[in-house]
Nucleic acid binder design. Structure first.
Lengths: 341, 341
DNA sequence: CAAAAAAATTAAACCGGTTTAATTTTAATT
DNA sequence: AATTAAAATTAAACCGGTTTAATTTTTTTG
């Protein structure tokens, strides 16, 4: 039989020691007002009786829950898994717990999460918004003034902190690399106009092309889902074109790896039969059999910076809005044929 | 200037409508005791004033927070990313929010998380324990009677629900497959004696070997870290052995893929120069260039079942302890040479 | 129509902390 | 020793809900 041990509260401690509830509370919070000896007695009783602080109760008065939301559109993507991991680590250091949500690009799921988050009185939110996210759907956040930092994908028209990658620069570097290698017929695979990342990365592509006098039209973009499957489908279609390109810049590594996979299945060699460059530099890009030339995005740094920004905003809700676009670096491997192999 | 909109509470609603706080509370909770007309008025006022339910306050009385912890030893591993995703999805359907923790195999981090979780009065915990987890370190969980389900790795000597894979069976299948292909000199790469998964998978290996009269000794195990890096290091060492094995069964796909990567760098072909079998069937195993023969573990199912088990236990703390070991299936691709290629 | 039963509402205590302003105790100063 | 200042403690209100038992209102019944 389990002894139904009664939960110990501040009151119990106070009564046992013959002091007031207030003193116990202060002692537990390490307030300098309580005498050293008193504090010692209290803490030792706390220890002895196995008292457990009730954060929910405390939050009722303080207005702080020490929790935040962490919602990403897809954390099965290694990019976000890593960002989340680092983010959580930093939050944890600051004694903040993170409510997780994998929105899976579902606006309903995302909205439901945000609603519940607010009911829980979370102190803030870190959000990599689902594709269809609009100002309207973020209305609860802004109207409740919930400290929020967007990551990876920015939403225009709403004054929220943001930390992500400089997508224009990233794909500009990637594309320029291909152009410098002599490629003239280049297609960008994946990405659309639905997220800021997509728009930026496309812009970087167009910029590099235009700078080099290469034509940019609709036919130079091939949209597909952000996944290896998407990449495989894309390469299959592209190879069956009448005059296929000689090089591909992929919206992300996940897509690029799918492309590599598709090439392999047709016994084509990346870097020889088709130059491929990715973006993100996820771990898989550096296997012996992939060696994907790509742009390294500091995924962990995005997660950490997001946590920092959020904490800053929680502590100072009227701080000026900050947008961070981290720089990235080109990692040359073998998939463009200019590799170190 | 932001208008400092005052937070609306149950009391406000009550006063405005000239009813009691209790009635409003009941109405909001859809209690059948409140008259239809009254409820209508209340709900419409709630809507109009933008009242937001305060779950923390409610939990103070109900003893339920509708939150649980979700701690995994490494969610950068696609296996766990997927399990977490499915788990979260199911929890969300049940209106439960999940506190995330990536323990990163750190016992301190894990213990800190559990402690804080209890302070937050979470209703339960889903835990894939860090390697060094022992009964002692789970003491807070058992002494607080926190509903808990372990996933992937079981901890012996503690009566907690568990859901994971049948590791013995999985690796037994994998190993038998290699033996059936004629391999006699087989090494198991990765895994140690520190977790139940490791012990089970090793046991499955030993069982298959013994059943076929093949010798099992220490030299038949090569431990390494559970990562592609671990796999690469392992294959490098193994290939420099005086008489290397002809086949490898890897503790996990992550390791197997590292092995494949290492083989590639030496221009060796999996399935021809070395048979390789993995375990987990993560997405990367099925690329054109990997085609890893492996054992498919139902990762998502583990996550879902964990959520189900936890909800069951929360609702009935004295339900009998349940251990689930999901069955897996062998996926034959090309890395053992018997593939469909 | 009065009495009884059912339905709806509510007062008040409670959950477990925080916090402010006032009070009591102790120490310092003249 | 009396006065003042500083340090320590506390009473009580408060945070925003839930819940029980009692009360009030409405409906049903004889």
């Amino acid at each position: 039989m389990e002894e139904a041990k009664k939960k110990i509260t501040l009151n119990d401690i106070a009564e046992i020691l013959g002091v007031s509830k207030a003193t116990v509370s202060l002692a537990i919070n390490n307030d300098s007002r309580v005498a050293a000896e008193t504090r010692r007695k209290i803490l030792s009783t706390v220890e002895e009786l196995g008292y457990v602080y009730n954060r929910g109760a405390a939050g009722l008065s303080t207005g702080r829950s020490n929790t935040v939301g962490l919602a990403v559109h897809n954390f099965t993507n290694p990019y976000f898994a890593e960002a989340c991991a680092e983010c959580e680590a930093l939050l944890s250091l600051n004694n903040i717990m993170a409510f997780l949500c994998n929105t899976n690009e579902s606006l309903e799921h995302q909205e439901h999460f945000i609603r519940t988050l607010i009911e829980h009185r979370a102190d803030g939110l870190i959000l990599s918004p689902a594709e269809k996210t609009n100002i309207q759907s973020l209305q609860p956040v802004v109207s409740m003034n919930l400290p929020t930092v967007l990551i990876a994908r920015n939403i225009e028209g709403v004054k929220l902190d943001f930390v992500g990658n400089d997508g224009v620069l990233a794909i500009h570097m990637a594309t320029t690399h291909l152009i410098n290698l002599g490629h003239k017929k280049i297609v960008m695979v994946g990405g659309n106009q639905h997220t800021s990342v997509s728009r930026n990365r496309r812009a970087g592509f167009a910029k590099a092309m235009e700078e080099n006098g290469l034509p940019v039209s609709n036919s130079v973009y091939y949209d597909c889902s952000i996944s290896p499957q998407g990449g495989e489908e894309a390469i299959n279609s592209i190879l069956s074109l009448k005059s296929p390109p000689t090089a591909l810049v992929c919206f992300s590594d996940l897509i690029a790896l799918g492309v590599l996979s598709g090439l392999h299945r047709r016994d084509l060699t990346p870097g020889k039969d088709m130059a491929v460059v990715g973006c993100d530099d996820i771990e898989e890009a550096d296997r012996g059999y992939t060696q994907l030339t790509t742009v390294r995005i500091r995924k962990g740094e995005i997660g950490r910076k997001a946590a920092e920004l959020l904490i800053r905003r929680i502590n100072n809700p009227r701080a000026p809005v900050k947008h961070m676009h981290l720089k990235s670096e080109l990692i040359i491997r073998e998939s463009c044929g200019s590799g170190r192999s």
